[in-house]
Design a protein around this nucleic acid. Structure first.
Length: 168
DNA sequence: GCCAACGTTGGC
DNA sequence: GCCAACGTTGGC
């Protein structure tokens, strides 16, 4: 449960009507879990190799809230909340030959992949399971949790986000 | 620039 | 382990 009393921020950037305040990002807990983030406190959301997901990260603002979703596990669902604290960071793993995210087609003079930095806010007492999310999400939002969908980042509408915040 | 083949994701 | 639903690749 979050202790916070934050509100959707009113920064100068929010004059931009395309601003999104809430997002959902997926990670397999085997690869990176909410517990790991809690220990790390801060992490780079690197390794995203899907253009649409990358483009969503490019639309993020500092202070945006992100629902952390555990995928490919039992049970899948939202397990916590984090906050975007830094933007437009070149993903270092694309140039790391030892990384599973190494991209030989990406050149340092023209990097293909970038990402955001997030910080831990809270871990849910109880997982918000996929069946529950299917009832709460709009059609667009369901795209991220659809079977076989490779999109791992999606904007969450404010109305949906308010409901989710009550439940995590 | 089409599209068939292929690889990956991820719930079930 | 199955397989639907995608994104990517590459021959033409």
């Amino acid at each position: 449960m979050g202790n916070s009393s934050w509100k959707p921020k009113k920064s100068p950037k929010s004059l931009d009507m395309t601003e999104e305040n809430f997002w959902l990002m997926k990670s397999e807990p085997n690869a990176y879990s909410i517990e790991t983030l809690k220990n790390d406190e801060v992490t780079l959301w690197d390794g995203i190799r899907n253009y649409q997901a990358r483009n969503f990260m490019r639309k993020m603002n500092k202070g945006d809230k992100v629902f952390f979703y555990h995928s490919n596990c039992k049970p899948p669902g939202i397990v916590g909340l984090m906050e975007v604290i830094d933007l437009n960071i070149i993903d270092p793993t694309q140039f790391d030959k030892d990384s599973k995210y190494f991209d030989p087609k990406s050149k340092p003079e023209n990097p293909r992949w970038d990402c955001v930095k997030v910080k831990y806010l809270s871990k849910s007492d109880k997982i918000l399971s996929l069946p529950e999310l299917k009832n709460l999400f709009s059609e667009d939002e369901l795209l991220v949790v659809k079977k076989g969908n490779r999109l791992s980042i999606i904007p969450v509408q404010n109305d949906t986000a308010k409901i989710l915040l009550e439940k995590i």
